[in-house]
Amino acid sequence: MAEKTATKDMVCIVCPIGCRLKVSQTGEEVRVEGNRCPRGEVYGREEILAPKRTVTATCTVISGRHRRLPVKTDAALPTEHIDSLLQEIYRLKIEAPVEAGQVLLENFKDTGVNLVAGRRIPN
């Protein structure tokens, strides 16, 4: 029996042109159509095989001048981990002072991605 083909329509975001891509996956094989340049093919392939996003949010900061501390992942995170990371972020309570870039969660779910503080918050 032939393997099933999954198809997804997406818009390439590598440059402002925004090529409309048709990406289909049959087993290990991925086909990208509609791209005007090779970067579009790479984008389409990654989006269907292992989509990743940079996550930005805020967490609680205690005894600082602000209530919320902006945080971000220092690299793009596989999308399947986003929800659990967000849950974790909303549970975090960080004590001021905080320095920009300070690591708050290290190597989240063994992805190699860290959560870092997005700004300095003094006492």
Partner: peptide, 22 residues
């Protein structure tokens, strides 16, 4: 603007709003 996407022209890297401001 806590999302990222700022600074590609000024600093050659993707920053969040607070980072760009800082």
């Amino acid at each position: 603007c806590i999302h990222n996407g700022f600074g590609l022209q000024e600093f050659n890297e993707e920053l969040t709003g607070p980072e760009y401001a800082e």
